[in-house]
Amino acid sequence: MSNVTVTTWSLEQTTPTDLLPAIAPAGDVRIVRAEVPSPEFSRFLYASVGGDIRWTDRLGWSYERWQELLAKSGVETWVAYDRGTPAGYVELDPQDDGVVEIAYFGLIPAFRGRRIGGHLLSYGVARAWDLAERLPERAGTKRVWLHTCSKDGEHARDNYLRRGFRLFDTEVTQETEVAAPGPWPGARAV
């Protein structure tokens, strides 16, 4: 296997007014919180969105590890549906001191390029900012952050910047190149 250079960008918003919402796409696109913790559904979203862009860190997780993540106080999964079909998701992971990480965000390949991503990201970031309204024991959000890398979709970083995120760190590393696993074992990457 060969090495590949990977650039990782960390971006943040420090006030709700930083959010620059995207225009909602045409058609029947809805965003709904997955309120019932479901390791099966969460793994489906993770593998389906990240299969062609080399998301591999969670593929080996056990059912119990998925349950543990989903049971963590404040973790939320917001799912975009296009005419009833899951199109993508955003996962919020609250941290200490009023910080919320956008842990995962993306669209299933068939739904990319249809203006759903900017809308879903806008909605997810707004939910990160108002997380305390759904989690009374939590203080208000003071910062929303995420990271993206050169292995993600070609428009990912630009989408974050258009939504009002600012770059605060850049890291360049060498990683062993891994073949894109596709949405399930044995599937062909798109």
Rank of each mutant, 00 (worst) to 15 (best):
D93R: 08
G106N: 03
W145Y: 05
T176P: 09
Y63L: 15
E101W: 00
V99T: 03
R33E: 07
G113V: 13
S2T: 14
V49G: 03
W9V: 03
A126E: 05
I31W: 00
G60K: 14
L121Q: 01
T17K: 11
D169M: 04
L107Q: 08
V178A: 12
G164D: 05
L146M: 06
W184Q: 11
E137W: 10
I116T: 03
A187G: 05
G117R: 00
I108K: 00
G51R: 01
E171C: 14
P25E: 07
R115Q: 14
G84C: 10
G74R: 05
Y81A: 02
F111L: 06
V125N: 00
F44I: 08
E101Q: 01
K72Q: 12
D97I: 06
E171W: 11
L70S: 08
R33G: 07
W145N: 00
P183F: 03
S122G: 05
W78T: 01
K151R: 15
A34K: 05
T170R: 09
T17M: 13
G140T: 14
Y89C: 09
P21Q: 05
R115T: 10
S38Q: 08
R162P: 03
M1K: 14
E177H: 15
D158W: 13
G50F: 04
T85Q: 12
H147T: 09
V75I: 04
E101F: 00
R188M: 12
E64V: 13
L161V: 06
G60D: 14
G186I: 04
F105N: 00
R43N: 10
P39Y: 04
S150K: 05
T141H: 04
G74T: 07
G50D: 02
V190G: 12
K142C: 11
A34V: 08
Y104S: 04
L161W: 01
G124K: 01
G60C: 13
K151W: 15
L19W: 02
K72D: 11
Y81L: 02
Q95W: 07
V49N: 02
V49I: 13
R127K: 08
R33M: 08
F168Y: 11
E40W: 14
A139F: 14
W55Q: 09
D158H: 14
D130T: 14
Y104T: 06
P25C: 08
R163S: 04
Q67K: 12
E177T: 15
V178G: 12
D52H: 01
T85E: 13
T15E: 14
C149H: 11
R58W: 09
E76T: 04
V4N: 09
K142L: 11
D28M: 05
R166H: 07
T15K: 13
Y81V: 02
C149E: 09
